[in-house]
């Protein structure tokens, strides 16, 4: 079993720091195959079902609540810290196991998680993070919950999604002039 250390400097050098996070976490040689598999109708259905599960969890745990987000930023309740924290612990343990055991995808590709690229003082992370936090606290929802709420009937948040698309577009337009 092939275990590839995702922290290898060669991997780092190949990634364009300005690129959006690559969503394909397999070695270069396997990428086209992975795309083909992901776009098979059966796979797309499974991804859709992952979404249904996630949307349901977001609603039932009240992560979609504007009020719960306020409670989180005010540190008045452990609820959302608990949700995000325990999700992180479970995800981190799983990722560590995947790396340690060299677990492959069900199609047999080695899993190689691309590291996030750090340049200079990491401007994009703290500045981008602050902008995102401002939006998160204003509208009380991050991207997943925005779509869950619209699906659940809070139709006004279509306007927030339109705003988010405008924000994404604005970033794309100015990104060569923004410090990263």
């Amino acid at each position: 079993m092939q275990v590839i250390d995702s922290q290898e400097p060669e991997v780092l050098a190949e990634l364009d720091p300005l690129e959006c996070i690559d969503t394909e976490q397999v070695p270069e040689a396997y990428k086209e195959k992975a795309y083909d598999e992901a776009n098979a109708p059966g796979s797309l259905l499974v991804y859709g079902l992952f979404g249904v599960l996630f949307g349901l969890i977001l609603v039932k745990s009240e992560v979609v609540s504007w009020f719960r987000i306020q409670e989180m930023f005010r540190f008045h309740s452990f609820h959302l810290h608990g949700v995000i924290g325990s999700a992180g612990v479970v995800a981190a343990t799983s990722v560590a196991l995947i790396k340690k055991l060299g677990i492959k995808t069900i199609h047999g590709e080695p899993i190689q998680i691309a590291p996030k690229v750090w340049t200079g003082i990491g401007t994009r992370y703290w500045l981008g993070g602050i902008f995102f936090g401002i939006g998160w606290a204003l509208v009380g929802a991050c991207p997943g919950p925005l779509f869950a709420l619209v699906g659940g009937g809070v139709s006004v948040l279509i306007v927030a999604i339109a705003g988010a698309l405008a924000g994404t577009w604005t970033y794309a337009f100015f990104r060569h002039r923004l410090p990263h």
Binding site: C20, I21, I84, K116, R124, Y125, L127, G128, G129, I130, F131, F132, G133, I134, G135, W136, A137, L138, V139, G140, A141, C142, P143, G144, L146, V156, L157, V159, A160, I161, A162, G163, A164, L165, A166, G167, T168, W169, T170, Y171, A172, R175, L178
Partner: peptide, 22 residues
Amino acid sequence: IMVLGGGFFVGFGARYAGGCTS
């Protein structure tokens, strides 16, 4: 400000930072 402005900052900030909460 909350709906349209909040949405805008979510979209702009997520791409600038290269990711959102998930």
